[in-house]
Design a protein around this nucleic acid. Structure first.
Lengths: 115, 115
DNA sequence: TATATTTGTAACCAATTGGTTACCTAAAAA
DNA sequence: TTTTTAGGTAACCAATTGGTTACAAATATA
């Protein structure tokens, strides 16, 4: 099943798993130990993460090390970027308003001084 | 219900809806006209989008204009940013490898010339 | 005023999701 | 060799999701 990375990161547990293994790979039990849910539940989440390519599993003896491979997050980033202007426009407007306010204040002070 | 923006953008139809109204607000029928699904289905998607604050509805007469308000996408962006180094590391490595290759080539050429 | 248009929403349905317990296999340790 | 330990997976379950049709309400138009 070709999984969707948007759907993969929709679940908060899966985002936590990513956070957990991003820096250092962990074996499945170690990951499961960090959550209140059962090991098979974590195993299912991990399967979804591997199916969309965000995690790769490396076998070492009887252990499976889960390693984050976050390249796919670039898809999400690219989707977001096309909208950044829309959500930052408002901040820009606020910024220029504050800037304007600053100038007005400066003018007032100038006039005071000139008086 | 306090909706999660990650979950809101997990659905491809909702991402399309966002794309559709990001530049210009549209009334609900106009949005529904762009999809093969029924109007109530679109209405449900729109409800999820408004519940997480990505869309606001403005009533004008009997019409409801759906307007994108994408500030919440910043949450997703912020979550992504903390991992950017991990997924760009590999590209950097590739880049420096290519750069190295380029230099090696140059050396070879130099040696050829010097011969 | 009568009719058409825009929308909300209830009731329903099938598929998916996120979880469980139970059981199996393979590898490591005693 | 026997016993732990790590992990996969099947079978099941309740809640959620994404869709439908049918109907009601409010506003515009003829």
């Amino acid at each position: 099943m070709r999984r969707d990375v948007f759907q993969a990161i929709a679940d908060p547990t899966r985002r936590q798993i990513i956070g957990l293994i991003a820096r250092h790979p962990l074996n499945l039990n170690a990951v499961a130990g960090e959550f209140a849910i059962s090991r098979p539940a974590v195993s299912k989440h991990m399967k979804i993460l591997t199916e969309c390519g965000l995690v790769i599993i490396k076998k070492r003896g009887r252990e499976r090390y889960c390693e984050a491979k976050l390249d796919q997050l670039n898809d999400v980033s690219a989707w977001l970027e096309q909208y950044r202007v829309f959500w930052e426009k408002k901040l820009d407007a606020l910024e220029s308003y504050l800037h304007q306010l600053q100038k007005t204040k400066a003018n007032k002070n100038d006039r005071k001084k000139r008086k």
